[in-house]
Design a protein around this nucleic acid. Structure first.
Length: 520
DNA sequence: GTAGGGTTAG
C-alpha cells in the first residue's frame, strides 16, 4: 500500500507560495489597545474589568476602534449601550450611524430595530435631515443605507411620530434610498392613507420565496410554491428571478420522496416557459448543479451541451459546477482538462475554480499537482481567499496535522484574510480527532477573543470531542453554556449527547427538529 | 427580511 503523502511536506505555506500577498499585510489590531482583550471582556460582560482597562482611555476612542476593526457589530452595540450608561455620555451621531451600517451589513435587522428604538426613546432632538446626512457619510453601502432608512421610518411610526416618519420618507427619496413595504405600509396606515397601501412587489415576493427555499424543513417548497400562487392571484407577475429561485430550491430540496428525480424543478421550468419567460444561464446552472449533486453526471453534461446548442453562453459558474462535480466524482483529469479548455472560450478560472480543484487534489492526496496548481494561480494573478485556507486547514486536520493547520490560521490572519466559523470549527475538529482537547478549547477562546461567537457546530464539535474521551461533565457544561447563550441545539447535538438532551427535555419531531417538552 | 446560480465545517 502506498502511504498517503503528508500534506505538509509540500511546505504548504500559502504566503511563501504567494509573495504577492505579503504586501497586503495588515495589522490585526492597533498597537496601543489590546483589542482582543477588550472584545473578550465585552463578550463575557466583565464590565468591572473593562472599566479598569478604560481608566486611562477615552470610551469614545474605544468605540471608534471597535467600529474600525470590523469587530462583531453585536458586541460593539453592547459596548455602545454600556458605555453611554456607565460614563453618562451620548455617542456621536456619526458613530451611531457607523454602527447601524455594520449591523445592516451583518443582517442584524432585529438589533437595528431595537437600537433605533433606544436611539429615539429619549425624545431625541436630532433632526431628520442630520440623521440622513450622517447615514450617508458614515458608510458606503447604498444597500445598508436603504435598510437603515427603512427601519428608522418604522421606528418613528412606532413612537407615534408619523410626521417625522413622513419627513424621513421624503428624505429617503432625496438620497435615493429604496424603501420597502415593511416601513411604507405602517407609515401609510399611520397617516390614514390605507387606500394607498403598497402591495408587495415582485422583489418582496421573491425575497419571501427565497426565504422559504433556504430553510431546510420538509414542505418548504410546498410553501414557496403557495406563495407563487398567491402572487399571481394578487396580480404581481413572477419574473425570471422568481422561477430561478424556485427551480434552485427544488433542485436543493433533499426531502423529496423520490430524491433521484428532478421532476418538480422541471415542472417549474415548464411553468416558466409557459408564462412566456425565457430560462437563462442562471436557470440552467441551477439545474446542472441539481443533476451534479444527485450524481447524475451524464444528465448534467447532456444539459450543458444542450445549453451551448441553444446559444446560451455558459459562465464561469457553469464550469465551476461541472469541475466541482468531476472532482467529487474522482475524475480529476477531466476536471483539470475542463479548467484548461475554458480559457479558449474567453472564460478565466477564478478563485472558486481553483478552490474546487484544490479540494479535489487534497482528497486524492495528489501533492505534486496541488503544488503546480497553486503556482499556476500565482502566475495568473488569482488570489487565494479564506475558502482556500479553509480547504487546506481541513486537509491538514484530516492528515492529523492540526498544529500545522493552526499555523495556516495564523498566516491567513497575517495576510488580512478573516477566518470564519468554518475555519475555527474545522481546526477544533482536527484538534479533537487528535484528542488534543485543550488545543480545541483554546481555539474556541481565540475565536471568541477575535469577536466571533461560537455557533452550534462549534459546540457540537467540542461536545463530541469531550464525550468521546469520557469527559461527560465538561461536555454537559458546554451543552449548558450553549443553551444559556440562546443557541438552538440541532439533530447532530442530539445524536452526540442523546441522554443529556433527553434529560433536558429535548425530543426530535418527525422532521428531526428538536423541541423542548419541558417548555423552556 | 431586503430578489437568482458554483467552492469550505459538525
Amino acid at each position: 500500500m502506498i502511504p498517503r503523502p503528508n500534506l505538509f511536506l509540500v511546505k504548504f505555506s500559502l504566503v511563501n507560495i504567494f509573495p504577492g500577498n505579503k504586501h497586503s499585510l495588515r495589522p490585526f489590531s492597533s498597537d496601543n489597545t489590546p483589542l482582543p482583550i477588550v472584545t473578550e471582556l465585552i463578550s463575557n460582560q466583565h464590565w468591572g474589568r473593562l472599566k479598569t482597562h478604560l481608566q486611562n482611555e477615552n470610551p469614545i476612542t474605544l468605540l471608534q476602534q471597535l467600529l474600525d476593526s470590523r469587530s462583531d457589530p453585536c458586541l460593539t452595540l453592547r459596548y455602545y449601550k454600556w458605555s453611554e450608561k456607565e460614563f453618562n455620555i451620548s455617542h456621536s451621531l456619526e458613530h451611531s450611524c457607523m454602527l447601524l451600517h455594520s449591523l445592516a451589513n451583518s443582517k442584524e435587522y432585529s438589533r437595528m430595530r431595537s437600537f433605533l428604538h433606544y436611539f429615539l426613546k429619549n425624545d431625541n432632538p436630532i433632526s431628520v435631515s442630520s440623521i440622513f446626512h450622517a447615514i450617508s457619510i458614515s458608510g458606503d453601502s447604498f444597500f445598508a443605507g436603504s435598510i437603515i432608512a427603512d427601519v428608522l421610518i418604522l421606528a418613528y411610526v412606532n413612537h407615534m411620530k408619523s410626521d417625522l416618519g413622513f419627513e424621513a420618507f421624503k428624505r429617503a427619496g432625496d438620497y435615493g434610498f429604496k424603501l420597502s413595504v415593511i416601513s411604507c405600509n405602517p407609515l401609510l396606515s399611520a397617516l390614514d392613507m390605507k387606500a394607498w397601501a403598497i402591495m408587495p412587489d415582485v422583489i418582496a415576493y421573491n425575497t419571501l420565496i427565497g426565504g422559504y427555499c433556504k430553510k431546510g424543513q420538509i414542505g418548504k417548497m410546498y410553501k414557496a410554491d403557495a406563495i407563487l400562487k398567491e402572487m399571481i392571484v394578487n396580480e404581481v407577475r413572477p419574473n425570471e428571478i422568481t422561477f430561478n429561485i424556485l427551480i434552485d430550491g427544488f433542485c436543493k430540496d433533499e426531502n423529496l420522496s423520490a430524491a433521484m428525480k428532478l421532476d418538480d424543478a422541471f415542472c417549474m421550468l415548464d411553468e416558466m416557459v409557459g408564462s412566456g419567460l425565457k430560462p437563462n444561464v442562471v436557470t440552467y446552472n441551477a439545474l446542472i448543479n441539481g443533476y451534479c449533486k444527485k450524481g447524475k453526471m451524464k444528465e448534467a453534461t447532456d444539459l450543458f451541451d444542450d445549453v451551448v446548442r441553444q446559444g446560451i453562453a455558459p459562465t464561469v459558474i457553469t464550469y465551476n459546477t461541472l469541475i466541482d462535480a468531476y472532482c467529487k466524482d474522482g475524475r480529476m483529469e477531466d476536471a483539470l482538462a475542463l479548467r484548461e479548455s475554458i480559457v479558449d472560450r474567453g472564460i478565466f478560472p477564478n478563485v472558486s475554480t481553483y478552490n474546487c480543484l484544490i479540494a479535489g487534489l487534497c482528497r486524492e492526496g495528489n501533492i505534486a499537482v496541488l503544488r503546480k496548481l497553486i503556482n499556476e494561480m500565482q502566475n495568473k494573478g488569482v488570489k487565494v481567499d479564506f475558502v482556500t485556507y479553509n480547504i487546506m486547514v481541513g486537509a491538514l486536520c484530516k492528515d492529523g496535522e492540526s498544529r500545522k493547520a493552526a499555523r495556516l490560521l495564523d498566516e491567513m490572519i497575517k495576510i488580512g484574510l478573516r477566518p470564519n466559523h468554518v475555519t475555527y470549527n474545522t481546526l477544533m475538529d482536527g484538534c479533537c480527532r487528535e484528542e488534543n482537547l485543550r488545543a480545541a478549547l483554546n481555539v474556541k477562546t481565540r475565536m471568541e477573543k477575535e469577536g466571533m461567537r461560537a455557533n452550534v457546530v462549534t459546540y457540537n464539535v467540542l461536545i463530541k470531542g469531550l464525550s468521546k474521551k469520557g469527559k461527560l461533565e465538561e461536555a454537559n457544561g458546554l451543552l449548558n453554556e450553549m443553551l444559556e447563550k440562546g443557541l438552538v441545539p440541532n439533530r447532530t447535538t442530539y445524536e452526540i449527547v442523546k441522554e443529556e438532551m433527553v434529560d433536558k427535555g429535548f425530543v426530535p419531531d418527525i422532521e428531526g427538529h428538536l423541541y423542548n417538552i419541558s417548555g423552556s
